[in-house]
Amino acid sequence: MSWNWDVAKDFLPELGNGLLITLEATALGSVLAFALGLVWAMAFRSPTRFVRWPVAAVVEFIRNTPLLVQLFFFYYVLPTWDIKFSALTTGVIALGLHYSTYTAEVYRAGIDGVPKGQWEAATALSLSRGRTWTAVILPQAIRRVVPALGNYVIAMLKDSPMLALIGVVDMLQKARAEGASSFQYIEPYTMVGIAFILIAYPASLLMRALERRLGH
């Protein structure tokens, strides 16, 4: 083992820049996953099967195929349809879409957990369907799914290095660039690996604490 502190020190600012991109991709991907997942979850509850079935099929397909391939699909296929996004935007879309199929199940579990009486009470009060969702069901459902959603944010963080493979300049890409230009591999890759653990571990502790507090 030949660890060189000078190399490590030189790479640190690069790592910091990469970290910002990693966090940006994770944050934007999360927002998209939270929003889209909610759409899927509500579609699962749609009264007509012409909505339920296609949505279920698409969600099932996306969840059971690799994020990396979906990423390549968007990155290489969309431009041929004259839809042009930056690599980062493409990455965020792929990440958010993929994880929306997981958050959808989290929401579904949360919605199923709201007692049936709540739906009936809303009907008895003649609340509109939209009002029932936004004022009665979702506020109760979302509270209990926060830790589970948080765990998927951590999972997205750990999957975000895939974006380097379409050229997004995140932490991993910074390490790859460093290796390509200076042939220094040990320090950059090790530092990136440790950076992920340093972020993911406290975050998962936080989620576990939250789970306990919400009484799961």
Binding site: M1, I197, S204
Partner: peptide
């Protein structure tokens, strides 16, 4: 468990692929 659950699989793969030969 905490270390490997905290690790990104892709980063670990690159590490094993590029760093292990140099370091060990």
């Amino acid at each position: 468990v905490e270390v490997f659950r905290g690790t990104s699989a892709l980063v670990l793969m690159f590490w094993l692929f590029f760093v292990m030969p140099l370091a060990f």
